[in-house]
Amino acid sequence: MKTYFKMLSIGKIMTYQEEWKNTLWNFDSWHFVAPTNPKALFLDTRTQREYNMEPRPEKWGQLIEESIWAPQLISQKGWELVTGSLFDSEWKSGRPLIIVSATPLYGLGLIETFLHDFVYPLKVLGVNVHTRFDFEAWKYNGKGFTEFLHQVAAWKPSRCIILSGDVHYASAVTATVSFKNGQKLTINQFTSSPLKNMSFGGLWGILMKQIMAINAIKRKNNEIQRVCTPSYHIKEVRKGHNSNTFLWKDAVNYQTLENNSIMETNNNLGLLMIRRRTLNNILLNPHHKLIQP
């Protein structure tokens, strides 16, 4: 009799375990809206991805290997779920909005380009780059990046603030986006990372820091202008560039920090103070000293 009841108990546990597993697999609402002021929309960029499985060549020197495209971090269905949750929270167009994205919408272009064009192709030589670097930037999929901009523009917030991290550096960016229909969107993005982990360690980290130090001289106090082509290719253009064949164009400005660079790699915690007309971004180190005014 004891064996019989034991078998029944195991059977129930297995059933509950299967039901729980199916619930997790089918759950699609990890995003949420926090009741802050302004309201903060937290995006799920992990479980709502969309992949284009058509192969494309990756080239490094004379070596070519097929690979899949970088994912759209949020699919069309994912954006529909996010939009529904945002307006169900009683947020309304014309109000300010905070968007929290694990990875920045506007990363540091040099890092993203260096990783994508020079490090990522090393996998054709057998280098396990996926476990050493994060190749999941919004920029790596122009269609996904464009969808992000179009969704925010459609919501029509009076002010759009993006908070992000997950990249082992801190930065502050202002971007003015112009769409082909004449609509404009201004984005203020603040990135703080990391608080505890070391940034850019080892040989790769030393190389990356050296490249960034050189590049900061070029980027400092310099507006970056980009366009997105109809094929979703995002490229930098010279000031005054005039073309009608674009989906959107933007002007990007990186804030210079106290270390005379556009990024902070020492451990930091971001503190953003939002007032009606101003944004004051401060970086605190673990000992609560100011890094940036």
Rank of each mutant, 00 (worst) to 15 (best):
T3V: 11
D88S: 13
D88G: 09
Q292L: 10
C228E: 05
N268L: 08
V124E: 02
M198Y: 15
Q189M: 04
T245D: 15
V173H: 00
I291V: 10
W79V: 04
D166C: 05
Y169M: 05
G94W: 07
K12D: 05
V82T: 11
W91R: 08
P38R: 07
E58C: 12
F135P: 06
N268E: 13
L43N: 02
N285G: 08
Y169I: 03
G11W: 06
F114E: 10
Y4S: 11
N197I: 04
M14H: 09
F135V: 08
R49L: 03
I98T: 09
N260I: 01
H130Y: 10
G142F: 03
M263E: 13
K218S: 13
A40T: 15
K220F: 04
P55G: 02
I224A: 06
Y106Q: 01
S158R: 09
L283Y: 15
N215C: 09
K143A: 09
R226Y: 01
E50Q: 12
R56K: 14
P57V: 05
F190S: 00
Q183I: 04
W155L: 00
E147P: 03
R226G: 00
S75Q: 01
G201I: 13
G78N: 02
K249V: 02
A154V: 00
F118N: 08
S67M: 14
V100E: 00
K184A: 12
H233C: 09
V124Q: 13
R277I: 08
I214P: 02
P121W: 07
H150I: 02
L125S: 08
N188V: 01
N221V: 01
M1R: 13
S101D: 01
N141Q: 08
Y140I: 02
R159Q: 12
I111M: 06
S158D: 08
N215R: 10
W25C: 08
I64N: 12
Y120G: 01
P35Y: 07
L81H: 01
L149W: 06
N188E: 13
R95D: 10
W91H: 10
L73I: 03
V227Q: 11
K235D: 03
R95E: 13
S243V: 14
A34Q: 12
Q151H: 03
M212V: 05
V227S: 10
G202D: 10
L43T: 00
G84K: 11
K39F: 04
L195S: 14
G107D: 08
G270Y: 00
Q48I: 01
G11Q: 07
T278Y: 07
